[in-house]
């Protein structure tokens, strides 16, 4: 119990420090932290569906892009905070709308289906934008300052992390993990598997929608190729994989490590960046399939019985 209290204290301290970053750090550092928090939000929300139920989704970029486009289309018409929240809600609604048929397929078929979803939304927006404006990109003017964007991502990232934590340790979470382990047995044991997966899909889509909305303003120029890029989904998976897939600490660690490593490599070796990153990922997948954290976690975070 004392250990747990110490952990909460430590997390509160980190959160407090994160709040202070814009006050002291340079714009470069703030941007880096903004990036970090963005990936944390994306990865933590991703594990709620994919880490907990085992339905590996490549759909995160679809929700990210949708949030970004929602913001781009409503910017200057509605207030910033409302735009961000609505970006998330639109994705939640979209996930709920497509959830039932999507979640009927399992395993690799689900992966491919969600990849298809990202591509579909990408080309939908390319065509839509050409129809509407004759060109595909959108420039956003009068965007909020770096500090505002930073705090927004901090809130969304913290929200996603806390949600992932509470879902995991809840009755709902036990249901989701049962689905991952043996879906038929879970269903026969009284779990409404369709509804559970559907809810997890919706929650999981809500956060990337908000992140996308914020990031649209951060970049101030968006087009479907970048915001719907499958790279977003892949990066999220790699991060979750690095940390070890099915828990909050793992996703957090994966997001932090990969963002920092990417940043370092990108700055030092811009040409070899992807190659080095790929090699690291292959190494981890091969030798630490349960994540870098796993061996440490086995020792430290064993559930107190």
């Amino acid at each position: 119990m004392a250990k747990r209290a110490a952990l909460y204290g430590f997390l509160a301290l980190i959160l407090a420090l994160l709040c202070l970053v814009p006050a002291f750090a340079s714009d470069y550092v703030v941007s880096l932290f903004l990036d970090l928090l963005m990936w944390i939000a994306l990865t933590e929300s991703w594990i709620i569906l994919s880490g907990y139920t085992g339905y590996i989704s490549l759909g995160h970029s679809a929700f990210f892009g949708l949030g970004a486009y929602f913001m781009a289309m409503t910017w200057t018409h509605i207030p910033y905070a409302l735009g961000v929240l609505s970006g998330g809600l639109v994705c939640l609604a979209f996930a709920f709308a497509i959830g039932f048929p999507f979640l009927r397929v399992r395993g690799p078929y689900f992966v491919i289906l969600t990849l298809g979803l990202s591509e579909f939304t990408k080309y939908l927006f390319i065509n839509l934008e050409i129809k509407l404006g004759g060109t595909v990109g959108r420039i956003l003017m009068m965007t909020p300052g770096l500090e505002t964007l930073y705090y927004s991502v901090l809130i969304v990232g913290t929200g996603a992390t806390i949600t992932a934590y509470f879902v995991k340790n809840s009755r709902f979470g036990i249901g989701l993990f049962s689905i991952k382990e043996e879906e038929d047995a879970a269903n026969s044991l009284g779990i409404n598997t369709s509804i559970y997966k559907w809810l997890a899909f919706g929650i999981s889509a809500f956060f990337p929608g908000m992140v996308g909305a914020i990031l649209a303003l951060r970049r101030s120029y968006i087009d479907p190729y970048t915001v719907f890029s499958p790279a977003v989904s892949f990066q999220v998976i790699v991060m979750a994989f690095l940390g070890g897939f099915e828990d909050v600490e793992g996703a957090l660690l994966g997001a932090v490590v990969l963002t920092l490593v990417s940043e370092a490599l990108w700055a030092q070796y811009p040409y070899y960046y992807m190659i080095i990153l790929g090699a690291i990922v292959i190494f981890i997948v091969k030798f630490m399939p349960l994540g870098v954290l796993h061996p440490i976690k086995q020792r430290l975070l064993k559930e107190p019985q």
Binding site: R171, I174, G175, F177, S178, E181, E182, A186, L189, G190
Partner: peptide
């Protein structure tokens, strides 16, 4: 409630959690 011929335990959950799932979601 049924059992399965080929047992379908929730393998990566503790024995206790497996049984808890029955309690949480059954009748």
């Amino acid at each position: 409630v049924r059992t399965f011929q080929v047992v379908k335990p929730f393998r990566n959950m503790t024995v206790l959690r497996n049984v808890m799932a029955g309690k949480l979601f059954g009748k």
